[in-house]
Design a protein around this nucleic acid. Structure first.
Lengths: 146, 146
DNA sequence: ATCCTTATTGAGAATCATTTGCACCAAACT
DNA sequence: AGTTTGGTGCAAATGATTCTCAATAAGGAT
């Protein structure tokens, strides 16, 4: 059994919740997708197995609480998630113009954050470091067009 | 004239937009409030001056684009903003249990981020570093109750 | 294996933050 | 002052997310 599966199973048992087919489908899809996904996208990948969109919405918070996924960005009115097992945590560089998202590693910043977490006695579940601005393409384009 | 006012004025002129009374009210309220605010809250602070909620919603993206405010967190289905002039950028420590938000300084992390921005030629407009987890109170409470 | 209790589900309706259309104003430039 | 062009309020529309509820399926106990 893969790590995400056993983790989810344990998490559900601890909470007295059941591991249903639908929840399993959502979990698998979340880990099959290797880009950011929103509820609708995830749904489109599993609707052939009769999972309803409502259930997708109901399962996402569970995966979140289990520390299996995290909110990557919110854009165009939708929440976009990403799974976070085996993935080094990363920084999202979000271009305000073309909406592109580039990722870089967060590793170099982690020690400082963990030190700070210790100071204020905070238990870190997930880290979201999003930086908005202009990517190099859009930046060049802006200069040209003046 | 305060910096946020002159900045907004310049921004609008560059875009061929007008500085109206309504926009001015929204701007002022955003800088008068010293906690996170959502559209509705900001609106409640200026509705005596006949600004409509729709205009608040229309002005917020302008302030965002002008680099005067940034999205602080999204919680309970609403976007919450904060102004970012004269304010050192900061980290938000969001407790998943009690929803409290504690802020700490981002200064120590900035150099590393700016170096990285240079590498990928990214023009930083705003930085959002949100960390979810459990604050010390809720963490203690969880341990006790087991 | 079958029963039984309780959580879960699909479907569609309901919510509610945010956006939009439109007819009437008001900046800002001449 | 006049004109152009954007801006505004209001109300209706949109669309992501949540909820209701009757029907179903886990999973522990027998």
């Amino acid at each position: 059994m893969q790590e995400h599966e056993s983790r989810f199973k344990t998490f559900l048992k601890e909470k007295g919740l059941k591991l249903t087919q639908s929840r399993y489908s959502v979990l698998e899809a979340a880990f099959r997708l290797h880009e950011h996904f929103d509820a609708e996208t995830l749904y489109s990948h599993i609707k052939q197995s009769n999972v309803s969109l409502a259930t997708v919405y109901r399962t996402l918070p569970l995966l979140l609480e289990a520390g299996l996924i995290q909110l990557a960005v919110r854009s165009e009115g939708r929440d976009r998630f990403e799974h976070i097992l085996g993935h080094p945590r990363h920084v999202h560089w979000i271009c305000e113009k073309c909406k592109s998202v580039v990722e870089t590693d967060l590793a170099t910043l982690l020690p400082a954050l963990q030190r700070e977490a210790g100071d204020i006695k905070f238990d870190i579940a997930s880290i979201t470091l999003n930086i908005s601005g202009l990517c190099w393409k859009c930046r060049n384009y802006e200069n040209e067009s003046q």
